[in-house]
Design a protein around this nucleic acid. Sequence first.
RNA 1: GGAAAAGUGGCCGAGUAGGUCAAGGCAUCUGACUGAAAAUCAGAACAUAAUGGUUCGACUCCAUUCUUUUCCA
Length: 306
Amino acid sequence: MPKVLIVVAGPTAVGKTDLCVRLAQALQTEVISADSRQFYRELNIGTAKPSEDELHGVKHHFINSHSIDILYSAGSFERDALALLDSLFKTKDVVILTGGSGLYIKAVCEGLDELPETPPELRSELMQRLETEGLEILQTQLQALDPVYCSQNDLQNTQRVVRALEVCLLTGKAYSSFREHQPAQRPFKIVQIALERDREELYRRIDARMDLMLSAGLVEEARSLLAYREHNALQTVGYKEVFDYFDGLYDYNEMVRLLKRNSRRYAKRQITWFKHQGDFKWFQANDFEGVLSYIQEVGSRKELVS
RNA sequence: GGAAAAGUGGCCGAGUAGGUCAAGGCAUCUGACUGAAAAUCAGAACAUAAUGGUUCGACUCCAUUCUUUUCCA
């Protein structure tokens, strides 16, 4: 029997959890979260992590699965999610993958090219050089090691320049030579769905949810995480702004304004990604019936509905 | 009713002793993105209140109108 992975993507606060819980109930299955922040145990309020109540007993994987100390990545997620899917598909015909982290979803659906992991020492060495020598020096070095990459990519993007250099230095080969961008074959069918909402309404929901987070104790949560503020996990909308508030960069009201604004911008970036990456079929976030019948149509009715 | 000051993009706000593209910030919009992705980076749109005058040339000077603020009544 063919196995089907249903991907439900969409911007933050659009209503993915609600819809996926209903879908999972209807399809008698479980959900894999593709959210690059919600798998951190120590982060709760600021990541809008769904509560037990909201999950209505539907099993969600990759929530609270990792400690804040580890350096997780899209590559690790691809590996772990595929392994999990393998075991879930032993008993399920359909599994749902949902989240707002586009690259993570892409990694599961299409796969990433084979690249070595970066040793943390190399990264910190390059970051050190970025600070002392400046971006230009790194650009020049990368130009020598991988002119192809340089001709095709934005060299103002420090993270990418560092990443490309890492691979070049690590392997002795050009980073671009690893980048094949060939979609991987998966032993299951994939149905990609994205949820949307009227922009104004989405922004209202984002603002309202931020107010909820604040009254739920976002500031206190951030205070308890201050020691980790340099960790990857906390380079995150919702915490950065509170940390800067602690530092006295601005007052409480300004913090709230920035929290909301940056969440809106984040949502916009997600929308851009899902519009242009992958092959998503878009639905209004409250159109559960539409989503369900689309899934049945695409995936062949008998196999999908129990 | 009288006097004074002021009217620059959605908001704030510079500026020109009249002369190529009217700064910047906020908000907005759009895009890129294969191991940091809630990250990182890139781009766009939008204004001189209105009308007339002076001038080769007006956002800048003058007049009128409208609006706002303050003061006096």
